[in-house]
Amino acid sequence: PTPPYLKWAESLHSLLDDQDGIHLFRTFLKQEECADMLDFWFACSGFRKQEANEGNEKMLKLAKAIYKKYILDNNGIVSRQIKPATKSFIKDCVMKLHIDPAMFDQAQTEIQTMMEENTYPLFLKSDIYLEYT
C-alpha cells in the first residue's frame, strides 16, 4: 500500500484527511507564522457540520468567535487573505444575526486556494516534509 506521506503529496485534501499529515503541515505553518490559516479552514468545516445538531444560540456564539478571532483584525494572517467583500458579508451576517451554516464557505474557499497555491507546495519542498519522508 502507498505510505501516507506519499499520499499527502497528491493533493491538499489528501494531506488534510490524515491526522499525521495535518500535524506535520501545522508544524510547518507555525514556523511560517500562518498556522491560523489551517485552524480557520477547520473551524469553517466544523461550523458547517454542527448545524444539524446544535442550537441557534451556540451557532451564533461560534460564528462570533470565528469572526472575532480570524476576521475582525485586519492585520491577522487569515483576514489579510480574504477579500474585503467576503469580510463584509460575514460581518453583516454576524451583526444582523443571520447565522447560516454556509456563511463562512466563501472565506474558506479563499483560504484554501491560498494554501493550494502557496503554502502547500512550499510544504512539499520543506525540510520538515523531506526529513519526514
Binding site: L16, D17, D18, Q19, I22, D39, F42, A43, C44, S45, G46, F47, K49, Q50, K58, K61, L62, K64, A65, I66, K68, K69
Partner: peptide
C-alpha cells in the same frame, strides 16, 4: 458555559479526521 476559545477549539477538532 464554554469560553469562546473552548468552543472554537471544539469546533476545529470536530472537523478533523478521526484516527485510522
Amino acid at each position: 458555559i464554554d469560553s469562546e476559545d473552548d468552543l472554537l477549539q471544539e469546533c476545529i477538532s470536530s472537523a478533523m479526521p478521526k484516527k485510522k
